[in-house]
Amino acid sequence: MSRTHVTTTVNGERREFLCEPQQSLLDVLRDELQLTGTKEGCATGDCGACSVMLDDRLVCSCLVLGVEAEAKSIDTIEGIATDEGLHPLQEKFLEHAALQCGVCTPGFIVAAKALLDQNPDPDEQQIRYWLAGNLCRCTGYDKIIRAVQDAAQTMRGEAS
């Protein structure tokens, strides 16, 4: 099977890869670029574990083809912490015990960051509906919602 050469930007770095035409962006991230922080829970766009940003748009990477990433910019869970340390969402997920098994956590953090980047002060219902595409089977969502609320407050510069 002939493979297509793709040039893209991942977490701010230029990356090139070869991929088969039917390979999803999720498979490319995990198998070709060894970025296994993005998880597969369903491969049908129903669980959100594979959430990434594609040109600043939140997508399920299992529903995007690898070849579609040509000349685009991808941000994954691996790019969220910086030289300054963890992102406030990462800090607050830990403080609030907003993860149990942790397999949905990368997707939740990527999706929640997308929300807070466009709406710094969402109410509970807005958070619940924004994250309705991310399944968590361990927590019942309570502590996740609180962690996102608390992170938003910290990012707004308010004391929690």
Partner: peptide, 11 residues
């Protein structure tokens, strides 16, 4: 925790 919020944890 840190490995689980940064994508490092190996499942």
């Amino acid at each position: 925790g840190i490995d689980k919020v940064t994508g490092r944890a190996a499942f």
